[in-house]
Design a protein around this nucleic acid. Structure first.
Lengths: 225, 225
DNA sequence: TCCATTAATAACTGTCAGGTCATTATAAAT
DNA sequence: ATTTATAATGACCTGACAGTTATTAATGGA
């Protein structure tokens, strides 16, 4: 017999199961798109869940049909896939046969272009801002995103050193120094830049970065611009 | 005759004048020290004014004797003097007679050491996080801090180019690229780093940065490490 | 010692935002 | 058409926090 019990309200577990199913539909991605914009603009604490819902064109209560709470929404936003874009770079390495300077140039340019065209490039600013309020999330993000990018860049440097094209310097430091300007640029754009502070031209900036660092890495004097 | 009016409460203007006088005493700097720590840790919105007061060892109401509101305290913290430290670098340039590579090395090292030893190095992270919530403040900070640093670095690059030591590249971009790794390092330390993410060794990082960028800037092939 | 002035606070208030719930609209099924 | 299941929401509740005020403690000058 069916336990036609006195319980009318569904159990919390059932509610969460339903939420998990719903999270794969269209509505949640609208909410997440709205959330990522607002979180990047204002930060986590200063963003009201009602505003997120409003921007997605639904009511606040609807948001809570799809996400357990504000924090779950934040985590969903942060853990959105940067990995596929990073992996495009990894494939580039596998296929590439030319010199490592050119490879490095192509790799960084690719990443810059791909991230610039997506809201994902706002995530560094967001993660930096909220890291101390969400330490586990920071560690997770470091592991799946930053460490991944470092590994890929590390392979290029190793390749260059092995082929006698690059000097052998402190590997970890070189990799950080390759990423830092890109990251800094994204971060600046989404914070100071968005408040009216001057920003450098992205392509000139990246070109100069590559020009400098490739000359600095090279074992032989390069043709100079 | 003195207007012995019915007014018992002091006028808001008088209160503010009193606050301005008090702000030059010892208590406010304790409050600001506490505030800078907490703002950097948790961000502006997530920091409760009661916690700031508690860390400074006073009650919340006392805080409001010295600062009009939370925002005024935040602005006071941000506008704390980075300029003197930057100017140490400017003096270095004036006195220096050697080659520009060494000058650049000394300048960046000096800044790195001086900022690392002070809570001021947390301000970039704070400003980045809150720029969009305080646009005027972002512009002010850009003007008195970042633009100032850029100008000083610009002079060194010009000096190097004039003396035939440095290649002539996009001036603005080069300056950004000199600062970006330092800034990024401070920002990382105070966000991801503080959440347990691995951080590179500062001195190795700075050494490699200088090694790379000076080699990249140099007109003549340098002695290579 | 007394008074006047200033420093400091505990207790309070109003507002605002996260989260819930009873109810209504919408779609599906028979 | 009627029932059932699901999607969506307005109205509500509650805790937390910025900012205020009435009161007390400290200070100092005569």
């Amino acid at each position: 017999m069916t336990t036609k019990a006195t319980i009318i309200r569904p159990t919390p577990a059932a509610v969460e199961k339903k939420r998990a199913r719903r999270r794969k539909e269209a509505r949640p991605s609208e909410l997440m798109a709205a959330a990522i914009e607002l979180f990047i603009e204002r930060g986590y604490a200063a963003t009201r869940s009602e505003d997120i819902a409003a921007r997605a064109g639904v009511s606040k209560a609807t948001l809570y049909l799809y996400f357990e709470d504000k924090e779950a929404l934040f985590k969903a936003v942060i853990t959105q896939g940067v990995v596929p874009i990073l992996d495009e770079g990894a494939h580039l390495i596998d296929e590439f046969t030319g010199d490592s300077s050119t490879l490095l140039r192509e790799l960084l340019t690719r990443w810059q272009v791909r991230f610039s065209a997506s809201p994902l490039c706002g995530i560094p600013k967001l993660m930096i801002s909220e890291a101390r309020n969400f330490p586990e999330l920071a560690l997770y993000h470091e592991k799946v995103a930053y460490a991944h990018a470092r590994k890929i860049l590390g392979r290029v440097i190793e390749r260059g050193v092995a082929r006698g094209e690059f000097r052998s310097l402190d590997q970890d430091a070189v990799v950080e120094l390759l990423i830092a300007p890109l990251l800094m640029h994204f971060i600046w754009q989404h914070s100071m830049g968005a408040s009216g502070c001057p920003t450098v031209d992205p392509t000139r900036y990246l070109d100069t970065h590559l020009d400098l660092i490739l000359a600095g890495l090279a074992t032989q004097p390069q043709p100079r611009s």
